[in-house]
């Protein structure tokens, strides 16, 4: 296992763990960020895991109190991290959580379902079947609170972004952009093709966990009817 450090501004750095998106790199990133957050390092503010690296935000003032006068805070943090990372047993297998996301496809919830079908010479039902059959990995969370960057969608239902983005996409809408699929946790503007909506909240700021999904989760979409959607939505609130 190899890593490289590089600065991200003057108060954070990146631990680079790969050059390409892969589930193996994803595992290592999960393991390392989990490990670092468990260390209770006084200078560690937070970690943001991404596809191929982990951003580590440090308290430069605290670090400056710990390191020597001739040492840069960045150098101190790199040296500390290097020692810590060496001690991680990368053989340990992190078990990933499996999460089902019920989706009511098409209709008012998925105004672009027909367009995605047409672009791929499929029927809307075939798009639903393919989308729901996928086994998806959450590589990272970004863009919006709880927004998952998901890998594993079939290229049979890929569709380019819309030429003019919508100004408002309702929360919990499921979309496709290129080879990616995702769910909008809060109302945001966006250019994705919208195929359905889930009754499940993905952003729960009052909860113990602010988001339903975390990097490393495996997810599956389950088609549900409009009635089931309404029922689940009522149960949520």
């Amino acid at each position: 296992m190899k890593w490289r450090f590089c600065p991200l501004g003057d108060q954070a750095l990146l631990i680079e763990l790969g050059d390409q998106i892969s589930s193996e790199t994803q595992q290592h990133i999960q393991m390392f960020s989990h490990f670092l957050e468990g260390q209770r390092l006084p200078w560690l503010k937070e970690c943001i895991p991404a596809y191929t690296n982990i951003a580590v935000f440090y308290d430069i003032w605290k670090v400056s109190q710990l390191c020597g006068k001739d040492q840069l805070p960045y150098e101190f943090v790199c040296a500390e991290l290097h020692e810590l990372l060496k001690s991680v047993d990368i053989q340990t297998h992190l078990s990933s959580r499996k999460i089902d996301i019920p989706v009511c496809y098409g209709g008012e919830f998925g105004p672009d379902l027909d367009e995605v079908a047409r672009l791929n010479h499929l029927t809307p039902d075939e798009v639903i079947t393919i989308h729901a059959a996928g086994d998806y990995l959450v590589h990272m969370i970004g863009f919006a609170p709880g927004f998952p960057f998901i890998g594993g969608m079939s290229e049979k239902i890929a569709a380019p972004r819309r030429k003019s983005p919508r100004l408002q996409i309702p929360a919990r809408t499921v979309g496709i952009a290129g080879m990616q699929t995702g769910v909008y946790p809060i109302e945001t503007p966006g250019g994705w093709q919208l195929i359905g909506r889930t009754p499940i909240e993905l952003f729960t700021p009052e909860g113990e966990m602010p988001t339903l999904l975390r990097a490393g989760d495996r997810i599956q979409f389950k088609p549900i009817s409009f009635e089931e959607y309404k029922q689940l939505e009522a149960e949520q609130s």
Binding site: E46, I48, I141, G142, A144, P145, G146, T211, A215
Partner: peptide
């Protein structure tokens, strides 16, 4: 808001 950026919270 520190500590929640990993959940996409700005």
């Amino acid at each position: 808001r520190t500590g929640f950026q990993k959940y996409g919270v700005i």
